[in-house]
Write a protein that binds this DNA or RNA. Structure first.
Lengths: 346, 346
DNA sequence: CCTAGCGGTCGGGACCGGCGAGTGCAAACT
DNA sequence: AGTTTGCACTCGCCGGTCCCGACCGCTAGG
């Protein structure tokens, strides 16, 4: 009569698997049956463990780099581990304090806070730290057109979060100053408190239907201003990349690290990947080549979204390291950092 | 009767030295007397060359990593080489074309142009590419104060080069809108066409002397606006860092590369170093640990300032790689890129 | 169902010797 | 005197061998 867990594994295999992964995570080397039998809480001979491991290997959770080496978890195995078996540690009190102190202590600018948080995370986790701050869908507070030269005007957009954005647009020659003022007023009346994406479509259709009480020139300015606001710009901050060279694996397979650096610089793929972490509000974990977006051969990402005062997700912060990283320690770390940032944005 | 050059070296030693460095630069390995004797245009036996090399070693220009290895130039030797002995090659026509096409073809935004140029440089030189764009002393075109919330105003500064900058300032409660307009007008009248640094001191003293025809409130705004404009902000763009892992040396001495990455991220030192390249208008070269600012152990920087239409230096572009890089090829490359950028800014 | 033991496999580290590149010195050459 | 030749010596590197330790799978026994 045996207890069967939902994942279709008996109690013993599960325990063996869990300890194997934990041992692997700290050592980075293949784990053999002997080591495991010493480590396991229940008394179990190496031979029995070998049998269990053979089963696990058949399930695709483990593999042996070569005969007569220990076993290593596969990506599938790691996934199972983090999904079900991982016991998430408590954040060490000193780390908790460090995070709060350093983040609260940094300057006021939002970008500065994020930079601080990232480099802190990278330091604590000894991985690369990442932040994506989406500039796009913050609610708007104010829009202003400023003439800067004949035929040129500047659109200044101030977000609710204090973020400021500006674009240069071309204006028709001989545009009266009043048109700019009018355009500003028109947009401010409609945009305030809404997100850009939100308002844009509505205003554009309104303009097309000529329901707006604007003269042609002003309407043109408004349209042009809106168009430039389209760009879904994201900013990506990366810190502590040098940690990517720390691991033993990196020394062997330098080529992999090279492509990783290139990917980070290209950044587009990385941003797209991190965007996936926005859905759902917990920590998300991407292991190895689970997704095609990013050639993270042998790398994992642990990322958590952070929200502003209105509970709206405005960005993602996380950590990038080898698949073999201390998930139990890093997950609460990322989680807590995201929360602290969220609190600070409120 | 022997010809003696100004650097206190005979003709033969100089030739030997030059060829040794060139050989080293392409191979990266210590160069022995036999190899050199084959390479040298004049017939000379290995033994004679050994004698010459012994002299050069005594002068501190060469050193042998161990007995019975070839010689390698010291930093002092490299310095001498680039200063006097280096024959600067012509830029290959296809490279010239590539540079011009890619830079001219990129978008209009100045930052985008620089990013393109940097990643191009990094690609061609197979090193990391660097740009420092100084935001500070572009001439100003327009300044505007925009009220965004009670007690908050935005200062928008538009530079001659189209660069836009903004800062949030606190304003006294109950500030009339007219004060902001007045402040804008006041500053525009005085700032236009001058650089920030230029105008700032003058205006501040004028304010203190109360010579300005402004009411107290407006004066306060102007002062506050000016204060926030102080920051000598620089932007650093780095591309192609993965090339730093290319060289054979890197594989051996990963630790060095690690600190290099950290330095690049910290960026402050790097910027300070690159700023040195602004003085004088040619290409400047920093070899190894010649300067204390930056722990560029084993790294060199080749950098050139670029100027705007007014001939004012507004930034520095360059390349960061191992000391052992093909100076003859890279120097004209950096030089030309800087010129193309300058032309584009005009 | 577990355990103990056996035979087999494989990677890694230590050791050794030969090879080649390069040096320095001294003697011979021009 | 400067240059070349020859020679002895020093290293670092490479490949081979050997041994050890860590594992595994299998089978027999509790």
């Amino acid at each position: 009569m045996e207890y069967r867990a939902s994942n279709g594994m008996g109690e013993r295999p599960r325990e063996v698997f869990r300890h194997l992964v934990e041992a692997y995570l700290t050592s980075g080397e293949p784990v053999g049956s002997r080591t495991l039998s010493q480590r396991l809480p229940v008394q179990l001979s190496p031979a029995s463990i070998r049998n269990v491991m053979a089963d696990l290997e058949a399930m695709g959770l483990l593999y042996a780099p070569h005969t007569s080496a220990g076993r290593v978890p596969t990506e599938k195995g790691l996934r199972l581990f983090v999904d079900g078996l991982l016991e998430i540690g408590q954040l060490a009190p000193d780390e908790r304090v460090a995070i709060e102190a350093r983040i609260n202590g940094s300057g006021r600018g939002i970008e500065e806070v994020l930079t601080q948080a990232t480099s802190l995370l990278s330091g604590l986790s000894r991985c690369a730290g990442l932040v994506v701050a989406a500039k796009q869908d913050a609610a708007l507070k104010h829009v202003e057109f400023v003439a800067v030269a004949p035929g040129k005007a500047l659109v200044v957009i101030v977000g609710d979060d204090g973020q400021v954005e500006n674009r240069l647009i071309d204006t028709p020659m001989g545009l009266p100053a009043s048109a700019l003022v009018e355009a500003s007023n028109y947009l401010n009346a409609r945009l305030r408190g809404r997100t850009l994406e939100d308002a844009r479509a509505a205003i554009l259709t309104e303009l097309e239907d000529e329901r707006a009480a604007l003269d042609a020139l002003t309407a043109k300015i408004v349209a042009e201003g809106l168009a430039t606001l389209a760009g879904p710009e994201k900013v990506l901050i990366v810190r502590g990349t040098s940690h990517l060279l720390d691991t033993v694996e990196a020394q062997i397979d330098l080529e992999r690290v090279r492509t990783l650096f290139d990917d980070i610089e290209r950044k587009a793929d990385l941003i797209r990947l991190l965007e996936l972490a926005r859905e759902g509000d917990g920590v998300r974990i991407f292991i190895g080549s689970e997704n095609r977006l990013f050639s993270l051969s042998g790398s994992s990402i642990v990322a958590a979204p952070y929200a502003n005062a209105q509970g709206k997700v405005v960005g993602v912060i996380g950590v990038l390291g080898p698949t073999r990283l201390n998930y139990g320690r890093i997950i609460p770390m990322v989680d807590h950092t995201a929360k602290v940032i969220g609190r600070l944005l409120g």
